[in-house]
Design a protein around this nucleic acid. Structure first.
Lengths: 138, 138
DNA sequence: GTCCGTGCAAAAGCTTTGCAGCCTT
DNA sequence: AAGGCTGCAAAGCTTTTGCACGGAC
């Protein structure tokens, strides 16, 4: 999605400030938060511009979207702790029966003031099918 | 969100089949997939019912939603690999500067046919603030 | 009989997109 | 001058909710 590096970028005040803002905060902002902040400086700013610029910044590799992977919720009846393998191409999600790394949790608990209840690990990559397909380079 | 265990549940054919379906598949279905599947059996089924039942099943602890945490996307300019601490109460996300567990990745790579590009670990719990607040039991 | 679950439809919430004009190169 | 970027508004998509009726207990 978005443009795969084929387009030329121009600079814009809005996008520059947006990147500055993102770099100055560690609160993992939402698009709306950025919108409200930037509107102080650009009163006519529109949300569309925020989203478009976020998309561009991600294309440029300067920003990451955190909860990507799927635009809609997914559900599972496997309530036992387990990890996930997610294919970046076809979106397939596979249960990954790895041993639960207890020592990681212990390690983590000692390094934060958070009360940790559980953790989640997701591995992103390409599945066998999509891996073969990539040889052809669609 | 939803009812916190205060309500009594009745059974329903729709919900029973939904749980069966979820247990019989490992494809981590979306609400819409469930809707399409169940409509074969319940032609008048509505999407609203699917969502409501998913919510109930989650309350009952029989089903998990995978991509929860935030209903909207979040962005960050910290492109270096790092993990996240997420507060289940206030939704706050904090960068967690843990060492990257290289051995986990190696271990994982050997146990799958996936080509793994990167991984993500999220720790869920309650932050210091919310932890204190919980004493009061809102 | 009570009141939970359902279908239907409308609404809500976040994100994307079409268009005409402005700004960067 | 060319074409990316912007504001505005409308549309899109997933999820939630109000309402009246039917079903479980």
């Amino acid at each position: 999605m978005a443009n795969q590096g084929k387009k030329k970028f121009r600079t814009s005040k809005q996008r520059n400030r947006m990147l500055q803002l993102l770099r100055a905060t560690d609160s993992h902002p939402t698009a709306d938060w950025l919108y409200e902040e930037l509107k102080k400086e650009f009163p006519r700013l529109s949300l569309g511009t925020v989203y478009r610029n976020l998309s561009l910044l991600i294309d440029m590799g300067l920003v990451k979207k955190i909860h990507f992977g799927s635009t809609f919720d997914r559900f599972e009846a496997n309530t036992a702790p387990h990890y996930h393998l997610i294919c970046e191409r076809c979106g397939k999600i596979i249960d990954f029966d790895l041993p639960v790394y207890e020592d990681i949790i212990e390690d983590a608990k000692q390094r934060t003031t958070f009360t940790i209840h559980f953790h989640r690990i997701e591995f992103f990559g390409t599945c066998e099918n999509c891996g073969r397909a990539s040889q052809v380079n669609i």
